[in-house]
Amino acid sequence: MSGGVSMKRKPLTTKQLAFYGLMIALALILSYLESLIPPFFAVPGMKLGLTNLVVLIMLYSKGARSAVFINFVRILLVSLLFGNGMSFAYSMAGGLLSALVMILLKRIGGFSIAAVSIAGGVAHNVGQIIAAILLLQTTSIAWYLLILWFTGTVSGAVIGILGGILCKKLQSARLFAE
């Protein structure tokens, strides 16, 4: 928790640089994999949020600053590679709100990784709806918010449970040790 402030002054070590590169590459691959899955359940915008797995693990192993950094770079690169300006705005709104909520809940403490991920999944969808309201200048997508509110909890739970298992396994991995 307190490591965030001192990290600002310290230059990045080679190991950290390689580690961040690896994590961004992993997030990109997951983004690409997810884009290959056809939209199911006839609910547009409903996604599994596989990349949130990386953000979640970063948040719990390296802290808030690293999680936000990875998320930002990932969204930027995905938009450049596979998307456009619009998708960048949507991803950014969803990604940042989701990260913010997850960081806050982790700070408050007492929540499991799955619960934090569920709140993050909902926040992600709320962020995207807010972006859509601003970009399309319409408030008539309230119904859409309702659907995405609940699908967000489902995908958040799936990712959260996976993330919890991974965090436990990765604690013993040398790569994640400082």
Binding site: L105, G110, F111, A114, A115, I118, A119, T153
Partner: peptide, 10 residues
């Protein structure tokens, strides 16, 4: 307890 509370709130 907090997890249940959070999910119930959502």
């Amino acid at each position: 307890a907090r997890d249940v509370l959070l999910i119930a709130l959502i």
